[in-house]
Amino acid sequence: MSVRQGLLALLAQEPMYGAQLRSEFEARTGGTWPLNVGQVYTTLARLERDGLVEAVGADEDGRISYRLTRTGRAEVAQWWVSPVDRETTPRDELVIKLALAVTVDGVDVDRVVQTQRTATLRHLQDLTRLKQRATTHLESDEDNGSVDLAWLLVLENLIYAGEAEVRWLDHVEARLIREASRPRRKARAIPTTDGEGTGAAGAPPAAHDTISTTLRGAQ
């Protein structure tokens, strides 16, 4: 998540000082990605250095507010119309763990899958409770509707991500069962250096090929 873009987008609404930016950012994302105030000030200093924001003076408590410059405004406008970069895949510990589990001897992969599925489901239950509360709040509260909506959307994103993870784990389990029942070399075996086996002509890709494809993007 780019803190820089987030702060710029908030400043497009009105001038704010550091602590205010931090609390606005957290309120709109439900505190899902907490910022420390030092991070906010460091980012503001860089934005000022790059000519994207400028100080508008201090209030009576000495807090300095910042506003966007013309260049800053253009940068925000550009951000809204640009897609988020999905080319570089962030490193995902679970994907790496499963990829290693199927290639390292002696790992109980079924147990790895089930342990994770239970934990993810438990997390999904927590998120669903939060969502129930957020939905009720959104329906009853008129003052802060857009912030409630933002929080609900963040929660729903986390719920869909959790659901996708469980579906993927179900898929891993089903594929391992299929691979185990195949009358040929086990897919779990570590590929040998003689170049034989896993890439046999006409054979569908083995489980570890699928997972390693995912990992290649996770630099």
């Binding site: 489901l121 999904l124 239950q125 998120l127 719920i159 579906r167």
Partner: peptide, 23 residues
Amino acid sequence: EARHAAWADRVVFLRDGVVVDST
């Protein structure tokens, strides 16, 4: 569907007729 099961107080996982885990 995990998203639907998450509305429950408890989720029980069945495999081959056996309860393998529960949240």
